[in-house]
Design a protein around this nucleic acid. Structure first.
Lengths: 181, 181
DNA sequence: CGCCATTTGACAACTTGTTTCCATATTCGT
DNA sequence: ACGAATATGGAAACAAGTTGTCAAATGGCG
């Protein structure tokens, strides 16, 4: 949280060669659009980190983590019981990761397993009344927080940013061309 | 990657009660700005996931992970050798996490330890020529990728989205009010 | 100078999620 | 109906990061 060892930024210590020059040269060669997009990507990383912090803090006193909140949200949004792989697909993470959260939340009486008529081993999961109550309280808090956070932001600008981000997301989802692996 | 078990979305399976109604009610109570912001946050989560995938794929054939790329970037941006805690501060993670990456990369001849005149045990780290070369190639690939990805996107819209995201980031950084913990 | 709080490195345990491997269940083509 | 391809769960290993503990180094203050 603090750099006690080298506060003053100018004194030249031991340095021999400078990769920075390469970084700068590459950046200047790019068109403005690509540079803006790179900045957007970096900002998304930073915001993502902050959002995870805030999200965890928001639901901590409900006894869940934001990962568990997300699982509750995926099932609630589907409005019907889902299997672990279905939830994983909806959340964009692996089924094993989802399964761990489901196991924990089932043990904590937030989810219940139901027999799946379509599959002998792959149970369906549905929130218990306790799980539903916790989820709705989480959503209430999120809603209040979003209202506070959006205070004074321009509606059209928000919508414009959302449109662009969705476009970006669409461009990112399809191709993963193996990169000469 | 595919939901084989429940493709048809309409057939009512076993469901008893519906938290969805709560979700929808909350959403409709919120002003449009808050709803757009919530959508932006969800989209950021999704884009973040895709970006991490792509970033890893981009540098995989260079023999580094995106975490290591980030460490190289932090030191290159500073343009002088840094200690592990300084890099951690710059990256927003803990010094132990950075130290793990530094240890690995030092072993792989991507970083070299230099004696720190200010501290007997806390070494300075600087990329070796090999590390510099790998980093500059990573940046070259990133630049090409960003150009490709930004193709056809409107410059002003990109800039507008960036401005809004930065504003959002600024609003997210300060207050973490403990939430009645 | 000496005490003491802070910083740091080293180490270990834990968390969250991914990957890999295997055994079983399911689906689909013939 | 049979067999192959695909899904699935479970366990184990791995990856990246956090937290906690301890000892050594540093720096400030009386």
């Amino acid at each position: 949280m603090s750099l006690s060892c080298r506060e003053d930024p100018e004194e030249p210590l031991t340095h021999i060669d400078e990769p920075k020059s390469l970084l700068v040269r590459e950046a200047l060669n790019s068109p403005a659009e690509a540079r803006a997009l790179t900045e957007i990507m970096l900002t998304i990383f930073r915001i993502n980190g902050r959002l995870l912090e805030k999200g965890d803090a928001l639901v901590r006193t409900l006894g869940i983590t934001s990962a568990q909140w997300q699982v509750l949200g995926a099932v609630s949004l589907a409005a019907k019981p889902l299997t672990a792989p279905q939830i994983a697909e909806a959340m964009g993470i692996t089924r094993q990761g989802v399964q761990k959260q489901l196991d924990r939340m089932t043990k904590e009486d937030l989810f219940e397993k139901r027999p799946n008529p379509r599959h002998e081993r792959s149970s369906l999961y549905w929130p218990t009344p306790k799980g539903q109550q916790i989820y709705s309280e989480a959503m209430r808090r999120e809603s209040l927080w979003a209202q506070e956070l959006s205070e004074g932001l321009s509606g059209p600008e928000l919508q414009g940013a959302l449109d662009l981000l969705r476009q970006l997301h669409r461009r990112l989802e399809a191709p993963l061309p193996k990169e000469g692996e």
